[in-house]
Amino acid sequence: MLSGMHHVALICSDYARSKAFYSETLGLHILAEHYREARDSWKLDLQLPDGTQLELFSFPGAPERPSRPEAQGLRHLSFVVDDVAATVVWLNGRGVATEPVRIDPYTGAAFTFFQDPDGLPLEIYQRL
């Protein structure tokens, strides 16, 4: 049986830029970082406070993945926060542009979107 999410893996176009975004701008904790010479690839393990991990990879020549207009596959990553409005202020203060806050018509929760350095849609969603 599935009991939770262990990690999400992302491939970035600029490893240093994405590492800084996820670890410094968003504040995810770095667990481990490895350079894999045989693949000319970096692997960075990051962790959220609830234990969920994000793996960040670099691969030379990786093709871009379309995200807009809506493409099949991963639509976005969503992070739970206690206060969407306060998190928007925090993100904006770190130079991260956010969309206007909306309310989920089914749950009544506030949410909004922003993007990582490769344009991957990221969401913050109010804890219910």
Score class of each variant (00 low, 15 high):
2 L>F: 03
2 L>I: 14
4 G>I: 03
4 G>S: 01
7 H>E: 11
8 V>N: 12
10 L>G: 04
11 I>C: 14
11 I>S: 14
15 Y>H: 14
15 Y>V: 07
18 S>K: 00
19 K>C: 07
21 F>G: 07
21 F>Y: 12
25 T>W: 01
26 L>K: 15
26 L>Q: 14
28 L>D: 15
29 H>N: 15
29 H>R: 15
30 I>F: 09
31 L>K: 14
32 A>D: 12
33 E>N: 08
33 E>C: 03
37 E>K: 02
38 A>F: 12
38 A>S: 01
39 R>Q: 13
39 R>G: 10
39 R>P: 07
40 D>R: 12
42 W>D: 13
43 K>A: 10
47 Q>P: 13
47 Q>F: 08
50 D>Y: 10
51 G>I: 06
52 T>G: 13
53 Q>Y: 03
55 E>F: 07
56 L>I: 10
59 F>S: 11
59 F>R: 04
61 G>P: 05
64 E>V: 08
66 P>E: 07
68 R>K: 00
69 P>Q: 05
69 P>C: 00
69 P>M: 01
70 E>G: 09
70 E>F: 00
76 H>P: 13
78 S>F: 00
80 V>C: 04
80 V>M: 10
83 D>F: 09
83 D>T: 04
83 D>I: 08
83 D>R: 13
85 A>G: 00
85 A>W: 07
86 A>I: 12
87 T>R: 14
88 V>T: 05
89 V>R: 13
89 V>K: 08
90 W>Q: 12
90 W>V: 03
90 W>C: 09
92 N>G: 12
93 G>S: 02
96 V>P: 03
101 V>F: 03
101 V>M: 06
101 V>Y: 02
102 R>T: 00
102 R>H: 01
104 D>V: 06
106 Y>I: 01
106 Y>F: 15
109 A>R: 15
110 A>S: 14
110 A>V: 04
111 F>Q: 08
111 F>H: 01
111 F>P: 08
112 T>K: 01
113 F>E: 03
113 F>G: 00
114 F>P: 01
114 F>T: 01
115 Q>E: 04
115 Q>L: 00
116 D>R: 03
116 D>A: 01
118 D>L: 00
118 D>I: 09
119 G>D: 04
120 L>M: 03
120 L>N: 10
121 P>C: 02
122 L>R: 10
123 E>P: 08
124 I>R: 01
124 I>K: 11
125 Y>G: 13
125 Y>S: 06
126 Q>E: 11
128 L>H: 11
